[in-house]
Amino acid sequence: MIGNDIIDLQLAAQESNWQRKGFLQKIFTASEQNLILSSKNSFQVVWRLWSMKESAYKIHVQQHSKRFFAPQKFECFIQSKTDGLVCFDSTKYLTTSVTTPQYIYSIATTKTIQNNSTSCFKINSTSRLNQRQATYHNLKSTISNRHKTLFDTLALKKNAAGVPSLYQNDQILTLSFSISHHGNYGLVSIQN
């Protein structure tokens, strides 16, 4: 399984004040808070860790179909500039993160060797609806190219837990993917 999460850093700076009293304490474990506060670029570490937690949570929801809000329970371990590990109880999720001055994203997987195709793209719209449409469009066109199917036969539907699935002519496609968008950036990851 696969989960991803992207953060538009410019928008994150506007939307959230990570230095707000209580903010770090609600989201991060004591050791994650140390990591953030001892870094020269705390802002970047906050969002790297957040995207790791969120991408792992997105797999967890696929596995258990139950939504909840417990960011602290997804404990992050940074192994390198890109590699990370997220532990939830005894479950481990492996993450790969990409950091640029504009955005940060993480992709979580359940197994070590798991190929995925990820595309990160710019969305030139400030409307959240357009941003979502652009992300859905990217997913559908990628799948229609790959499966040599018609774009218009594909539809995206979410289940009660908010997990999206792709349908072709009302038949569900057995395909593991994850989509995310935030501000001017979209992210589509498909497990190969």
Binding site: E15, R20, K21, G22, F23, K26, W50, E54, F69, P71
Partner: peptide, 10 residues
Amino acid sequence: NSANLVDVVL
């Protein structure tokens, strides 16, 4: 957005 849910809680 889920990061803002923390702000709602606070």
